[in-house]
Design a protein around this nucleic acid. Sequence first.
DNA 1: CTGTATCCGTGTTGATACTG
DNA 2: CAGTATCAACACGGATACAG
Lengths: 227, 227
Amino acid sequence: MSQKRAYQDGCAVAHALDIVGDRWAMPIMRELMLGPKRFTDLRAGLPGISANVLTQRLEELEASSILIRRRLPPPAASQIYALTDWGRESEIVFQVLGRWACRSPTMQPGKPMSPVSVVLSMRTMIDRSRIGDLNAVIGFRFGEEAFRATLKDGNFLIDRSEAADADATFIGDQNALVAVLYGGARYADMADALRIEGDRMLAGRFATLFPLPPKAPDMVSGQPSVS
Amino acid sequence: MSQKRAYQDGCAVAHALDIVGDRWAMPIMRELMLGPKRFTDLRAGLPGISANVLTQRLEELEASSILIRRRLPPPAASQIYALTDWGRESEIVFQVLGRWACRSPTMQPGKPMSPVSVVLSMRTMIDRSRIGDLNAVIGFRFGEEAFRATLKDGNFLIDRSEAADADATFIGDQNALVAVLYGGARYADMADALRIEGDRMLAGRFATLFPLPPKAPDMVSGQPSVS
DNA sequence: CTGTATCCGTGTTGATACTG
DNA sequence: CAGTATCAACACGGATACAG
């Protein structure tokens, strides 16, 4: 039997890489960050992963106490995978990593994102100082997945639920919303990929809450800056 | 020519994993975090890495503008690898990841750490509120590597240099210092693995600045212990 | 001494097909 | 729906040889 390949290093970062450094481990955690999912739901948010790799990663993440599997009550014969408290506390890692990486000179925009990662990106990138006295409930419906965001007292709170009480609701393709929030596009250009119900002024103001940090200089093809 | 395996995902975290998610990439960045190093110095801090993998990672990290290679002036025919500004700004990722992972129920203490990772761990784990009005310069000499830490005005500043002006200096094996700072051992138990020059009272107080956060419960092998 | 290139054994990953 | 089984391709690590 094979000893799992591990850094033999007391550094906590090396241990982190031992447990979440395998391919697909962190994207799986990302998909669970806003609530439990079933095997097939996970595959839907992780295009390219194969069933056997997903199985193996779920076992390893469970062994590391990052997630637990729960069997749903009898009528539904399926299992769900849920992050543990400690697993959920890793969100700060995703936020810091995302904020650093979005400045990458080699990052190409336009690739598709899962509904969960779009919602997490908002929680990561929102500039709380711009919320001001904005007080609103915003709904999102991206295919099967629905989310509810509350802007209140300078905070931005998210949960995974239908927002019947939303002041504005985005319905359609999450990638269209990304193009507006981060790509400088206008809702009007999204045609029918994204529909807005409710307060369109609010939707417009919402789109100004997510400033992108400056890109880091490209040291390969560009000229190095004077340090 | 094969396309490098990449997540086809617009998520910034997925991009981060594309550029620093390969095995050894982050440990290499860690070793460069406190200053440039040569190929052989890197190998010394990364036990287990093979020369060909190190070469390949250095090329990839350079292509991602995370590090640059500089050729030293003629007398020394060698190259050094240095993080770019943006590469250095990833330190917050290491800190957050380390703070999360050191709570892991499966992390086993006692494995060796490189001099750089020990010094970085101090910068990560220090509790600034405990510094108080402590005002001191502390030197470290771990084999070939020397560091200088300044405690002043509640800050903890590090650079890679000999500290001729140190109030206290630690000389010897960095793992012995780890055992004291994080393992609750006493300097006296380190025998000759760690020598302290200068103010031993200061060294004692220094060891109280690095509290460990509570472990996360192990969801696999046991009930969460009520300690 | 400082890297880089090549070969090789092994384990990990990924695609397809298949089973309860 | 929730995974296994099988197999091919690739990445990793070790050794060695080579270049400046």
